[in-house]
Simulated assay, not measured.
Amino acid sequence: MYYQSSYDSPIGKLIIVSDEKNIIGLWMVGQKYFLGTLSHEAFQYTDNVVIKQTKNWMDRYFASQKPDIKELPIVPIGSEFRQRVWKILCDIPYGTVTTYGDIAKQIAKEKGIASMSAQAVGNAVGHNPISIIIPCHRVVGTQGSLTGYAGGIDKKIALLELEGVDLSDYHRPKKGTAL
């Protein structure tokens, strides 16, 4: 059984979903792939301990207190490849960014293969079911593009600015699906 609760954040309403013991989803209302990994409906329930912990974590995050991802029991639902990408995202330090290409190179090296598609990585990043906590907003294009955020570029920029990232070397993409 899934439980959900809403959280009013500075970037808009978020929906937190728990399986009672773990956080399995955190989506921005209206984002691309909203509730996309749920196999059945979630019931409104605000007394869940894990949801309360997550709301406290979010309060501290939006107050720039840099809460640790490891404080929360997160269990995103996805393929083995997506799980690997999301694990790498969890290791991106607060206030820093990496590129889709760098993540692809890391996975290729781990697998002992010559290369990995940055587009495949981008697809996995875009389907991250636990936004903000698993910091997919910290991934940018190789040429400094702020592309590829399912919640929208404005929200990506707001999160990066909250974390103190200097965005002077980055730019909005001229076209794309997650603008």
Results as ranks from 00 to 15, higher is better:
87 K>D: 12
99 T>R: 03
85 V>S: 07
96 T>N: 11
88 I>F: 14
149 Y>P: 02
94 Y>V: 10
41 E>I: 11
123 N>M: 15
87 K>H: 10
173 P>M: 01
53 Q>M: 15
9 S>P: 02
55 K>S: 03
116 M>R: 11
94 Y>M: 13
114 A>N: 11
159 L>R: 06
67 P>A: 07
143 Q>K: 13
137 H>R: 13
54 T>W: 00
37 T>N: 12
9 S>L: 07
45 Y>C: 08
74 I>S: 06
73 P>H: 08
156 K>N: 10
177 T>K: 10
10 P>M: 07
104 A>R: 10
56 N>W: 04
39 S>L: 06
42 A>Y: 00
59 D>S: 01
166 D>G: 03
170 Y>K: 02
7 Y>K: 09
127 H>T: 14
127 H>Q: 15
81 F>L: 11
9 S>G: 03
97 V>L: 06
71 E>K: 02
137 H>Y: 15
45 Y>M: 10
5 S>M: 03
65 Q>T: 08
39 S>M: 09
24 I>Y: 00
68 D>A: 12
55 K>H: 08
46 T>W: 09
177 T>A: 06
177 T>Y: 06
137 H>A: 09
81 F>W: 12
12 G>K: 03
48 N>H: 04
168 S>P: 02
142 T>L: 12
138 R>H: 07
89 L>H: 10
39 S>T: 09
46 T>D: 15
93 P>G: 09
145 S>W: 05
62 F>Y: 07
142 T>I: 10
53 Q>K: 15
162 L>C: 04
22 N>K: 05
167 L>Q: 02
44 Q>I: 09
48 N>Q: 13
77 I>V: 13
174 K>F: 02
89 L>S: 09
148 G>A: 08
8 D>R: 06
20 E>N: 11
160 L>R: 07
99 T>M: 05
154 D>H: 14
154 D>L: 12
24 I>W: 01
5 S>E: 13
29 V>T: 04
45 Y>K: 10
7 Y>M: 11
4 Q>G: 02
153 I>K: 14
150 A>H: 08
30 G>V: 00
72 L>W: 01
120 A>P: 01
161 E>Y: 01
9 S>T: 05
165 V>F: 03
62 F>V: 06
101 G>I: 13
137 H>N: 11
110 E>R: 07
172 R>C: 00
39 S>H: 10
162 L>N: 12
157 I>D: 07
40 H>R: 06
145 S>A: 12
119 Q>A: 14
144 G>Y: 08
3 Y>H: 14
29 V>S: 01
136 C>W: 09
87 K>W: 06
58 M>C: 12
81 F>Y: 14
159 L>P: 02
97 V>H: 05
70 K>Q: 06
81 F>S: 11
78 G>V: 03
57 W>T: 05
69 I>H: 08
62 F>A: 08
148 G>F: 04
79 S>C: 08
50 V>M: 01
160 L>T: 01
123 N>Y: 15
116 M>I: 01
132 I>A: 10
